[in-house]
């Protein structure tokens, strides 16, 4: 694996997050966790009306699911900014979200067993 440190994201300063989120609190969007999974909604006729940041976010999420953290990584935006964008997009019906663990369907024991089995199958 190549050293990931080599590709530092360009620093996102004070001004840019503010502009992108139209001044909304960065703390907004608390319902998104780092590993909440996101995909683009199938019907995207309104996409062209979105501002560029939101449109590229939706386009990034076409073709499957990505976590909030991955979206931030690919877009090189701070997590907080991505959460705000996601709130708006969810409200507008542009994205679908999946909670990290389906509520009350799985115990930790079950998840841990699947993680263990998966790791062993993969790495022997």
């Amino acid at each position: 694996m190549t050293a990931p440190d080599e590709q530092e994201p360009e620093s996102v300063g004070l001004v840019r997050p503010y502009v992108i989120t139209n001044g909304r609190e960065i703390a907004d969007g608390d319902r998104f966790e780092l590993v909440t999974l996101i995909t683009a909604a199938p019907d995207q006729q309104q996409k062209s009306r979105l501002d560029p940041e939101k449109r590229s976010l939706v386009e990034l999420c076409e073709g499957g699911y990505l976590s909030v953290a991955e979206i931030a990584g690919h877009m090189r935006l701070p997590i907080g900014v991505v959460k705000v964008l996601l709130s708006d997009l969810a409200e507008g019906g542009h994205i679908l979200t999946r909670a990290p663990v389906p509520a009350a369907q799985l115990t930790d024991i079950q998840v841990l067993q699947e993680v263990l089995d998966g790791l062993q199958a993969r790495f022997g």
């Binding site: 694996m1 990584g73 701070p78 997590i79």
Partner: peptide, 21 residues
């Protein structure tokens, strides 16, 4: 993380104060 990850490891930033409230 790089050794085990199936994707090239990603890096992201968290801003520590309400940036430009």
């Amino acid at each position: 993380i790089g050794t085990l990850s199936e994707i090239p490891p990603l890096r992201t930033e968290e801003t520590m104060t309400q940036a430009a409230a």
